[in-house]
């Protein structure tokens, strides 16, 4: 896919937008305004914007618990997402799902609380996409932790056998909470698993948004043209702890975190854009200022959104 200047600016905006919403929710969490849990995805924005920005609205995206940049770039409604996290009636599930968010209209699948349950959901979405014949494709994100589940095997195998239009994208941030991937996955690289399921497997620098976009969009085209699934492993890093409120323990060194933070995907892309002369500092700052305003308004709106009436606890179990 050949990216225009506008496309690149859109990628930058989507990365920054995810970061700013992430920071806003992180701040709210630490002020005690979020009743449940929050998994910050700061550090993963190149993957988020790279996979989601150029999908069609009716393509399906399965995001992880760290997938706010991804979801927003796909069309997730920021207000409803934030209200849901705050347990408000204005959220996607009237506050009943919390950190789970799905949006059928914008092609966002049902991520969930059991890590690795993404694989069967995506396989089913791929099957529906294929059978309904509207050229839709599915992108399924998953972590290196999820890659340890048996669901990966059964569903990558199914997608291979049935030639389903699915792009499997691993966000390998090296840790499943505190366990290093080397202590939990026997393969050298997660992308190596692709051979077992007869699909191409590729490793990309997950901090390089242009590379992520290029490789993912190639796989999307493959899937759309009936050529079946692909596996892409994005090497990335989470800058914050697994969940907000968790105290850092010595499972990783300060030096390692510092080294990775030098490869902040937004900063890297900003330098690149300025270097290319695509935009000026002022242009980029203006994008940031505009987003700050949007985020502030969204936060105000979500906080204003009322709590659900108690009766809501007893509705939406069955379709009447």
């Amino acid at each position: 896919m050949k990216l225009t200047h506008e496309d690149k600016i859109l990628l930058y905006r989507n990365m920054l937008r995810g970061r700013k919403y992430d920071e806003a929710l992180t701040k709210m969490f630490n002020k005690g305004q979020v009743p449940g849990m929050w998994h910050s995805g700061i550090g993963h924005e190149a993957v988020g914007a790279g996979v989601a920005t150029f999908l069609r609205q009716d393509d399906w995206l399965e995001v992880t618990h760290r997938g706010i940049t991804h979801g927003l770039a796909k069309g997730l409604d920021a207000r409803m997402w934030l209200a849901e996290h705050l347990g408000r009636v204005g959220g996607y599930a009237k506050g009943k799902g919390g950190h789970h968010c799905a949006d059928r209209e914008h092609g966002i699948l049902i991520g969930g609380g059991t890590i690795g349950s993404c694989f069967p959901i995506a396989a089913g979405a791929g099957l529906a996409a294929k059978r309904l014949g509207k050229d839709q494709i599915v992108v399924c994100l998953f972590g290196d932790g999820a890659a340890q589940r048996a669901t990966l095997h059964s569903c990558m195998n199914l997608a291979g056998v049935w030639n389903l239009p699915i792009v499997w994208v691993c966000e390998n941030n090296l840790y499943s909470i505190t366990t290093h991937v080397k202590n939990a996955i026997a393969a050298e690289n997660i992308a190596d698993l692709a051979h077992s399921y007869n699909m191409p497997g590729e490793i990309v620098d997950g901090q390089d948004v242009l590379m992520v976009t290029e490789v993912v969009m190639d796989a999307v085209e493959r899937a759309r043209n009936g050529k079946g699934p692909s596996l892409i492993e994005c090497k990335t890093y989470r800058f914050r702890e697994h969940g907000e409120g968790e105290i850092p323990t010595p499972y990783r060194t300060r030096e390692e975190v510092k080294e990775w933070k030098k490869r902040d995907p937004i900063k890297l892309f900003r330098y690149l854009l300025l270097d290319e002369g695509v935009v000026t500092e002022e242009d980029l700052n203006a994008i940031g200022t505009k987003l700050d305003k949007e985020v502030a308004e969204t936060v105000d709106w979500a906080i204003e959104s009322p709590m659900p009436a108690l009766e809501e606890a007893f509705t939406d179990i069955y379709v009447e």
Binding site: A125, L132, A150, N157, L158
Partner: peptide, 20 residues
């Protein structure tokens, strides 16, 4: 389908969400 109950039933959830 392959011998994979997790995939059989889990795919039904994804497929139903997407219109089958």
């Amino acid at each position: 389908s392959p011998l994979a109950e997790t995939a059989i039933v889990g795919a039904a959830v994804g497929a139903a969400y997407c219109g089958l």
